[in-house]
Design a protein around this nucleic acid. Structure first.
Length: 769
DNA sequence: GTAAGAAAAATTTTT
DNA sequence: TTTTTCTTAC
């Protein structure tokens, strides 16, 4: 086969595809054919001697992986594309972890906790530690633990890291370190990993077993990463390790579209790529094939106001196009009417299809008013967001049964279904079991399994109920290795009375619950059938579970062929394009979100978010703001977003008729904001030690490799808890130790003399044994 | 142990 | 406003 397809690429795209000699960063501006480059490059590699199985392509969503795979299949054929190692970081490395699970002390059937499970477990631990969940907000604790894991900080390391502990004290949660420790222990006891563990443990595995690392290094000869701007440190490190020997790595992304830092994504990964891979070649895709010149220019002028970015000149050779229309309305209701009227107009007079129109907003809460307006105007619409199939209560219940059948130590699953459907095992009993498990350092299941041994203080009636529950689960568990997954699930929903429960009353809710459960059972059936066709003779339940644990499918209504307009958050719109885009709610405190005000970095991320929104539009873009908005139960006055005036005035049509004026904008302009940016100390966890020497290309060099994946990265004699003697301050207790620019600092509590942070090389400390 | 009513909170969320 | 969590009465 010849490389005909190379002719379909422009010069810079082709250059990016053809360069295969080493580390490569492809900066792909919005609409510049990023996916095209990735797919063609993979095809190109396959034509040049790389076997499909030796190519690893990492994406951020299952959907992206699926789409890319099918596009490659159309280039090189289904058969060859099938063996590509393509998927999300989480799915690919969870499979690896199952294979190598003994090395890190898990079974191959470990459970994957979703975010809700994680949060529940954290809540339980907070309660057990007798802390108030007013002060210790589970969501905040979870995000701290998640952040730590994404930066490869294990619980032990966390407890030794002064900077982390200080931060926690500052936000009045000094014991997060302890919660983290218990949380990790409990996950391990339950044979469970959370999402972040999949990445963290992959790193630990590589660290722990150089042989295993080597095996994968030799196997994967080319690694490609999509959406690189949204990767975190743990992901960076996995790729870094795997590609260590050959550095045959290609990362593709757009720093201007990094919008997921709140999930641990680290924009420095892309900004610092050339410092982390010394021989890296940078390719820039700057021609935008999606939008009109005016939209591209407007977006460029907006993003130019950001400080943290890689210089690039995105341009369009399409027609000039219309200006971005800024619309001022009085209320959120009026905004809805305006959007609806315009859509009708576009549809009728300009013949624009509904599916080519999208309304984008910052928060899901805004969808209601818009939905109402569309309904009134009889415009067909589709809302993205909300609950996915696998997050529905009844589905989570069925899955919880499946999980406990496969792994009885799965505590979160147990707690979910031990009294659902109600079987008279109430909170008090569960509390007793939990207490009992903690005191005997075992799992709740063990306690239920042998109530006498652990002296569970319950009456005979309760004991009988518990025994009945145990036997129910065990009866399935015994068959789980031999019986077909479909049969087990089918029997489970019947025998646990999950499905009978929906017959209790003929309400629409019950009907819908029943339909969902039936659909789930059908999905299991289809999974078994499909695997059978692939030659697997018996599909067991744990196979199915590990398949669905990482699915959070967004694209359900795929069958819905009717033309509809799209309502979604800006985040959800990433990667999509529409002829006409309405961006609504462009107001201070909403977009940018008030939560971002305190941190210039977050403000820049909000601006990138607006950039993403603008660049979704191909032909026409409307941006609206309301002077008052109903929010959180009350009507508030609002000012137009500062981002509106960040767009160069020549690319916008400002509202003419009403009193639009510059005084409406808040006083801080972007120049001041940029000054703030420089002086601002970020209230984030310090992760990397930056040395301040500036290298050629204005980026500060980051020493990633300082950080070790190990239990104790800081080799210190001054561990927390030991006692030391100081010439002046006397005897004190070590709180912790950190290293800064190679100097070790020790923080010590000298009791009456107070807490001191001392530089080790100056302070003459004597360790007391 | 459960269910109803009061009080409190309220981003974005690819895994 | 809605949604989630807490309290209180059965």
């Amino acid at each position: 086969m010849t490389f005909d397809f190379l002719n379909e690429l422009n010069d810079s795209q082709r250059a990016a595809v053809e360069y295969c000699d080493g580390a490569q960063l492809v900066i792909a501006g919005a609409g510049s054919g990023k996916t095209r480059v990735l797919t063609y490059k993979i095809a190109f590699l396959m034509e040049n001697g790389y076997s499909p199985a030796s190519i690893m392509a990492l994406t951020f969503t299952n959907k992206a992986a699926r789409e890319m795979k099918s596009r490659i299949a159309s280039l090189v054929g289904e058969k060859r594309a099938r063996y590509l190692m393509m998927g999300t970081f989480h799915s690919i490395f969870s499979r690896m972890l199952r294979r190598e699970s003994d090395t890190i002390g898990y079974t191959k059937n470990f459970t994957i906790y979703d975010s809700a499970d994680s949060k529940n477990l954290i809540k339980t631990i907070i309660k057990e530690l007798k802390l108030s969940d007013k002060e210790y907000k589970p969501a905040v604790v979870h995000s701290r633990i998640s952040f730590a894991k994404n930066n490869l900080i294990t619980a032990d390391v966390y407890a030794q890291n002064l900077q982390y502990l200080k931060f926690d004290s500052a936000i009045k949660m000094p014991l997060i370190s302890d919660i983290y420790k218990f949380y990790s222990a409990r996950c391990r006891q339950a044979d469970a990993m959370d999402f972040d563990d999949l990445l963290l443990n992959s790193n630990i595995l590589f660290k722990k077993s150089p042989e295993i690392l080597q095996k994968y290094q030799q196997f994967f000869r080319y690694i490609l990463v999509d959406e690189y701007q949204d990767t975190n440190f743990a992901q960076y490190m996995i790729v870094k390790k795997l590609a260590e020997n050959h550095e045959h790595i290609c990362v593709v992304g757009d720093d201007s579209q990094s919008i997921y830092s709140f999930r641990g994504a680290n924009i420095d990964n892309i900004l610092q790529f050339r410092n982390n891979y010394k021989d890296a070649k940078i390719f820039k895709l700057e021609q935008n094939y999606r939008s009109t010149q005016n939209i591209v220019n407007a977006a460029n002028s907006l993003i130019a106001k950001n400080k943290d970015r890689i210089e690039k000149t995105v341009f369009s050779e399409k027609e000039k196009g219309n200006r971005v229309k800024i619309i001022s309305v009085h209320t959120d209701l009026e905004e809805g009417t305006f959007v609806a009227n315009n859509i009708k107009d576009l549809h009728r007079t300009q013949n624009i299809d509904y599916e080519n129109i999208a309304v984008l907003y910052r928060t899901n809460a805004q969808s209601r008013v818009l939905e109402e307006a569309m309904r009134k105007a009889a415009i067909p619409y589709r809302i993205y967001g909300g609950l996915s199939f696998y997050q529905r209560k009844e589905i989570k219940d069925v899955i919880a049964y499946c999980r406990i059948i496969c792994n009885q130590n799965d505590e979160e699953a147990l707690k979910r279904i031990i009294n659902f459907p109600v079987r008279g095992i109430g909170d008090t009993t569960i509390e007793k079991i939990s207490q009992c498990a903690v005191t005997h350092n075992t799992t709740m299941w063990e306690v239920i399994n042998d109530m006498l041994k652990y002296n569970l203080p319950v009456n005979a009636g309760t004991a009988a109920k518990l025994a009945k529950f145990r036997d129910l689960i065990l009866s399935f568990a015994q068959q789980v290795e031999s019986e077909n997954a479909y049969n087990i699930v089918n029997q489970t929903v019947i025998q646990t009375e999950l499905i009978t429960d929906t017959y209790s009353a003929p309400t629409p809710e019950n009907m819908s619950r029943r339909e969902n459960i039936e659909e789930f059972v059908k999905a299991v059936h289809e999974f078994c059938e499909q695997k059978a066709q692939e030659g697997v003779d018996n599909v067991i339940l744990s196979d199915f579970l590990s398949e669905i644990a990482l699915i959070t499918d967004q694209d359900e209504n795929i069958n819905d062929k009717n033309a509809k307009i799209t309502l979604m958050t800006v985040h959800a719109a990433k990667g999509l394009e529409f002829g006409v885009v309405f961006i609504v709610g462009m107001e201070e405190e909403l977009f940018p979100s008030a939560y971002s005000y305190s941190d210039p970095k977050q403000l820049e991320e909000e601006r990138r978010l607006f950039y993403v929104a603008l660049t979704r539009a191909e032909e026409q873009c409307f941006v609206s703001y309301a002077k008052s908005r109903f929010r959180n139960g009350q009507t508030n006055f609002s000012n137009p977003s500062r981002f509106i005036k960040d767009i160069d005035i020549q690319y916008v049509d400002l509202p003419k008729e009403d009193n639009y004026n510059k005084n409406m904008f808040i006083k801080t302009d972007w120049a001041t904001e940029r000054e703030n940016f420089d002086s601002f100390k970020h209230p984030q966890m310090p992760v990397f030690q930056k040395d301040k020497t500036t290298v050629k290309n204005k980026f500060t060099r980051v020493k990633y490799d300082v950080l070790q994946v190990d239990t104790v990265p800081i080799e210190t004699d001054y561990k927390a808890g030991i006692f030391v003697k100081h010439e002046v301050f006397g005897i004190g207790k070590v709180i912790g130790s950190t290293r800064e620019n190679g100097n070790e600092k020790v923080e010590i509590d000298f009791g009456e003399k107070g807490k001191k942070t001392l530089l080790l090389k100056f302070a003459k400390l004597q360790i007391l044994k």
